[in-house]
Design a protein around this nucleic acid. Sequence first.
DNA 1: CTGGGGATGGGGCCC
DNA 2: CGGGCCCCATCCCCA
Length: 256
Amino acid sequence: MPRSFLVKKYFAKQKPNYSELECQNDSSPKRYPVAELSSADGSATCFTTGLLWDLSVIPALYLPTSESELSATSAPLDLSSPCSLSSSASSSGEEDEGRSSDPPSPEPVHTYTPRQRMKCTGVMAHINPPEEEERETHVTAARPAFLCKHCPKEYTSLGALKMHIRSHTLPCVCTTCGKAFSRPWLLRGHIRTHTGERPFSCPHCNRAFADRSNLRAHLQTHAEVKKYQCGVCSRTFSRMSLLQKHSSSGCCSTSV
DNA sequence: CTGGGGATGGGGCCC
DNA sequence: CGGGCCCCATCCCCA
């Protein structure tokens, strides 16, 4: 379901809570790793590039550019196409057009052979000799595997690995509460919880939200036919989690 | 128990 | 290659 076909998920249901990260990241402090960003892998460089923002300088970067943007978000409310959910629950056809990177086949392309290994220390690991590489790619288009040293995750690109490492190093720190985040925009969103800024307003009611995703979820509540439909009783739900609850607690004895 | 909001994580895409 | 943004998913909490 996650569009993560770059990462080999060893922990399907890994909940990346801070508490867990603390466990995984042996060098992390007790709570919010405020100043603990001294990882030598260079992934914390963004810490030095002004990520310790002052609240006063946080712009409304996520402000919708126009009403049309919001209405565009609500466009799928039409739901002219009933999205029977059974297997493609999260892909809402139309709105994912062009952006959804769901692999065409249900089988993610995990055909690479992890010959080249790179730890997230940033140091280049062993690279196959060209001839060997050629043999390898000839058959399976072998791609390098970039391993995180903090967890067993494995990536097929260094950029993806670096991005992931930030979830361990948490270089973006809230100056108000000290909470740390992996990415600047996560911090921005968090800061809105302090400022109360809610740039995303619902075109159908007076509610406003600090997060676009939450607005999108809210818009589902206005839809007569909601996005997630029970395959058995055809009841629709605004959230996947609600459908899952519904399925697991009675109506449908069948699996989702 | 259900529905919904708040908050957050993470991978992909575009520039 | 990195930053910014998008979208999805999920957990927690509350009414």
